[in-house]
Each structure stands twice: as C-alpha cells, then as structure tokens.
Design a binder for these strands. Structure first.
Lengths: 132, 132
DNA sequence: CTAATCCCTACCACTTTACTATGAAATAAA
DNA sequence: TTTATTTCATAGTAAAGTGGTAGGGATTAG
C-alpha cells in the first residue's frame, strides 16, 4: 500500500510549482536542484501531470513549466489520481469484471470504503493549502 | 497504491472465518475450496494473521483455524495493517528519519492525512459487519 | 499406526520500480 | 543564422517485489 516514488516526487513537484507560480515558467533543472531529484526522472513524471492538464510547458531558453491553473483550483486527490493512475486500493473497485466474485464480494465493499475515504479527504485539500 | 493479493486474500480469509465462527476450527483446505485460493498460498497468509493474534490454530485431524476473538471485537483497519505491515502510504509517515526532508516536508503532511483517513474509516468497521 | 492437518523453509518466474542514457525538436537570443 | 537552452520521446536496465509452487516436517484424533 505504499505510494510509488513517482507519486511522491510528482506531488513535491506540484508543490514546488505552486510556490513559484507567480514567477512564470520554471525549468526542470531548477526544480531538480531544489528537490534533489534527477532531471531525467522528473521529465518522465511531469508527462503524467501534463496529460492530466495540471501543467503547461514552453520549450527553448527561458522556457519551462507552470501550473495550468491557480493552485486554489487544484485538488490534491486528483493530482494523486493522475500520478497513481487512480487511487483505487484494488482493481476490482473500478473494474468489477476483472474478478468473477466481485458481484457479491464483501471484501470489495471494504475496498470501496477505503478508497473513497482517502480520495475525499485528499480532495478536500487544495494545492494552495500545501504551501504554508 | 494497490493492495497486494496477500491483503485481499487475507481479508477474504478473515471474513470466511467469521462466517464459520460458530462451527469450531475450520481447515485451510475448506477455506481454499470456498475462496478459490491455493492451500499453500493461504498457509503463508494465515501466518501473518496468527502473529497479529487474530487467529488460533489446532493441528491434527479435526484441527483447523478459528478466530481468536468474536468478530465484533476485530477492527478491519487492524486486520489490514497486519497484512500490509502498516497502512502508511509512505514510509516517512512512520519513519521520518528515512528521509532527510521529512522534518519540514509539506508532502509528508499529506501522506499523514491520507493514511489516517483510511485507517480511521477502516477501523470504524468490525469484522462482524462484513458478514451480511 | 495412519491419516489429516498445521507449520516451516526454500525456490522461482514474472512484473514493477526507479532510475540512467541517448538524442531529437523547438525556440529565444546573439 | 548560429548557438545555447530548454522540453519531448524512447529505450534500456539492475534491483526489488509479487504471487505463487514445492517438499517435507511436526502434531494429533481415531
């Protein structure tokens, strides 16, 4: 039940972007330096957050990355969901057909409870609340 | 963020034991048959639940496994914690010293929130509530 | 004594994780 | 137009974790 480093680094990346939101595009190099994470690894992680629409980027000198919307509009649960490919604690929560017992499975009910408890709590927090 | 099959199978195992609590010790063979899980794999999983004190066993013919206490006294969060070796979504929640940034890490605060949201919700459910 | 049952340890194929590496494409500034 | 700087795309890889299987020993009811 551990988050991957992709998720942990990705979250720190988002917080870093929020902290520099007013300064315009920030290069991966500077984020990597501040966060102590390799540039190449961050490049891969940022792709996930771009796909989810949280970040927009510009190439070339003076280019970089910036949040696609103000930090107040970004829910932490949705950020995590983008990084983790959903927060479901079991595949059967989202895809019941992957298990032939899913229809009347008491365990599955539990996975739904656990998943939504975490998701709701995380979504009650905005990225803006993560800085200070 | 997916639970391992150990946790999912282990939970189903506990529910199965609860359903047969009044019948005395149940053999792994019969659980395996009902749940469609191999005997050998269940044997490994049950060890974790025995260590945590949820199950007691007797050897020999007519032997088997039974809950060490009534299903009403068993919290699902603690069952999962035993199977998953803690429910922390990141190692730094329980062991801050494993990350030198933990002391003032905004991400870590988030992992604490997510972990306790899930743990508290799961602990509000007793094993007895999982059957019917 | 025998059969049923739990207990213990080792092994293994496969997948995932957590990166590193290489280089191409875009673009601002000289 | 050249150059330096940045993102973008893809491939490779060592180590760890997952999800089992296998074999045999210990215990005990009948």
């Amino acid at each position: 039940m551990k988050l991957t480093t992709k998720s942990r680094y990705g979250t720190r990346l988002m917080i870093d972007l929020a902290e520099h939101y007013s300064e315009g595009p920030v290069s991966i190099g500077s984020i990597a330096e501040r966060q102590g994470i390799s540039v190449k690894y961050l490049e891969q992680i940022i792709v996930l957050l771009k796909k989810a629409g949280f970040i927009k980027s510009t190439r070339g000198p003076k280019g970089g990355h910036i949040l696609a919307m103000p930090p107040e509009e970004i829910k932490m649960g949705e950020v995590l969901a983008a990084l983790e490919d959903g927060l479901d604690v079991s595949g059967c929560v989202h895809d019941p057909e992957t298990c032939d017992r899913a229809e009347d499975c008491k365990a599955r009910d539990l996975w739904e409870v656990a998943t939504s408890a975490m998701y709701n709590e995380l979504n009650s927090l905005k990225l803006s609340e993560m800085i200070q």
